[in-house]
């Protein structure tokens, strides 16, 4: 049933996705140790940067656009808790805790990502 080209295609796809995943995890390990900054972007602009390591009480706010995303922040984690967008991908993504993790609401053009930042250096420049 399978032909030669099928096998080649499947092998190449497997190799590419495995090596991509290995590269991804290595990148994750490297940035693990840095301070976690949640960057909230709406349309093309960064509207908020929160150091989630240092949040000590519950924070809640809403980003209003075409749709409304309600965002919840606790110590060490952030998530979209409520959204009135049609696909709900952002809500189902759940909590973001690690550097590099990402929650996207494409309908509302909102993105939350956790960036690693070396605060000792950036503390001077900020």
């Amino acid at each position: 049933m399978l032909k030669k080209g099928d096998i080649i295609l499947l092998v190449i796809t497997a190799l590419l996705s495995i090596s991509g995943y290995v590269g991804y995890s290595m990148y994750m390990d490297r940035i693990e140790s840095l301070s976690k900054i949640a960057v909230i972007r709406y349309e093309d602009q960064t509207i908020r940067r929160i150091n989630i390591d240092t949040v000590d009480k519950l924070m809640e706010f809403t980003v209003n656009g075409i749709y409304n995303n309600k965002i919840l922040v606790e110590k060490g984690r952030i998530r979209v808790i409520e959204s009135d967008c049609p696909d709900q991908v952002c809500v189902r993504t759940g909590w973001l805790t690690k550097t590099g993790e990402l929650a996207v609401c494409v309908p509302n053009r909102l993105m939350i990502k956790i960036e690693g930042e070396n605060l000792e250096i950036d503390g001077v420049t900020h």
């Binding site: 796809t13 590419l16 996705s17 495995i18 991509g20 995943y21 991804y24 990148y27 990402l102 996207v104």
Partner: peptide, 23 residues
């Protein structure tokens, strides 16, 4: 998605998962 979000780096991280899922 890269064009809409204007964010290349992080969305590229999804590529391996999307390829595996596609296969």
């Amino acid at each position: 998605a890269v064009i809409v979000m204007k964010e290349l780096s992080v969305l590229l991280l999804y590529a391996p998962f999307l390829m595996a899922a596609g296969a």
